[in-house]
Each structure stands twice: as C-alpha cells, then as structure tokens.
C-alpha cells in the first residue's frame, strides 16, 4: 500500500478540490469566483498529460509543422526559395548547353 505525501500530480484533483474549496474562509477583500472544480481538474490533467506524453515519446512535430510554428514556416519558405534558385540555375545551365550544342550541328 502506498502512503503518499499529498503533493504528487496523482493527487491533482485532491489538491485542487481541497485548496480551492476547503480551508478556512474569512471573507477576504478581493473576491474570486472559481469555475467548476471537476471540469478544471480534467482540463489541468489533460494539459499535464499531453505535455508529459509528448516529452516521453520525443514528440516535437509542432516545432517543425509550418501550420503550428511560425519558425517552421519561415524555415520552410527559406528552403523552398533555395530549391527554387538551384533549379533555376540548372535550367539556365541546360538552356545554355542546348544553345551552345546547336551552334555546332
């Protein structure tokens, strides 16, 4: 049987439910209404789970997907530009060659 200190993320709901809803209330001057705690816990757990999972399986596709990362989009543009220039050079060279060859036929 595991006896746990209550800070681990497995106890996320407990910590949230306890500190957001329990504890002594002496009306403060600044009032804050908190959203539904169950819903909040689910949201937070999903955020934690997705980040953990992504790290675990080395998933970083959003960093290279131009739809999700502007840096990736810029890099993509740059690469296309280079490719374009190279292709243009090759076409020019080929055209030159053809023109040159024709002269001697």
């Amino acid at each position: 049987m595991a006896i746990e200190q209550s800070t681990q993320s497995s106890n996320l709901v407990d910590v949230l439910e306890t500190v957001l809803d329990k504890g002594v209330v002496i009306a403060g001057d600044i009032r804050v209404g908190l959203a539904d705690i169950e819903l909040l816990s689910i949201k937070i757990r999903l955020i934690i789970a997705s980040v953990d999972k992504a790290k675990e399986i080395g998933m970083d596709w959003w960093e290279t997907d131009p739809y999700l990362s502007s840096k990736a989009a810029d890099e993509n543009q740059e690469q296309l530009k280079k490719e374009n220039e190279q292709l243009q050079k090759r076409i020019d060279a080929l055209e030159d060659k053809i023109a040159h060859d024709n002269r001697f036929i």
């Binding site: 500190v19 504890g23 002496i26 403060g28 001057d29």
Partner: peptide, 24 residues
C-alpha cells in the same frame, strides 16, 4: 498554496486558509 501549507503544517499547528484569501 498547498505546498506552503504542507510545509507550515510540518513545522507548526496551522489553520489553513482557502486559496486566494486576499486583503487590501
């Protein structure tokens, strides 16, 4: 908030407040 209260609880007897109890 919780970790502070846990630490206080380990050191002293404590009356824990609800999260975000704030005064002017």
């Amino acid at each position: 908030h919780h970790e502070v209260l846990l630490d206080l609880n380990n050191r002293y007897t404590v009356i824990p407040m609800k999260f975000c109890t704030i005064y002017e």
